[in-house]
């Protein structure tokens, strides 16, 4: 299962990382180098073994349906890159006029 150039370009796109062309071969080599060490896992017999999902067998605690909300010690404007009228502003989506292809829920 070797990582290809296309794989790296694909996962970089998924992760929203712009990779300069010249860094791709190096990353392909590094990921393959690292993943080669993971091959040892394939030989481990895990028949009937459940994967660890969280530690212990506790249930997720439930909180009551009440406030108050956790306060912010400084206003959103103090940390937001761009705000207007209380909204966070981002560059407009290229696809906005067709509603939107990426789901929101």
């Amino acid at each position: 299962m070797a990582v290809t150039r296309e794989d790296v370009v694909h996962i970089a796109a998924l992760a929203r990382l712009a990779l300069p062309e010249e860094r791709v071969p190096e990353l392909v080599a590094q990921l393959n180098g690292i993943l080669a060490h993971m091959d040892v896992l394939r030989k481990v017999d895990t028949t009937g073994v459940t994967g660890t999902a969280g530690i212990g067998d506790a249930s997720t605690p439930l909180r009551p349906d009440t406030g108050p909300q956790i306060p912010l010690a400084r206003p959103r404007e103090a940390f937001a890159p761009q705000m207007r009228d209380g909204f966070f502003l981002v560059p407009r989506l290229a696809t906005h006029e067709t509603a939107d292809e990426e789901e929101t829920a």
């Binding site: 761009q82 207007r84 009228d85 560059p91 407009r92 989506l93 906005h96 829920a105």
Partner: peptide
């Protein structure tokens, strides 16, 4: 599951407003 926020595309020129 949880809902996402709201994107408003037509309020500010060139920008999407996030609530």
């Amino acid at each position: 599951e949880e809902d996402a926020g709201k994107s408003i595309h037509d309020r500010y020129g060139g920008a999407t407003a996030i609530d």
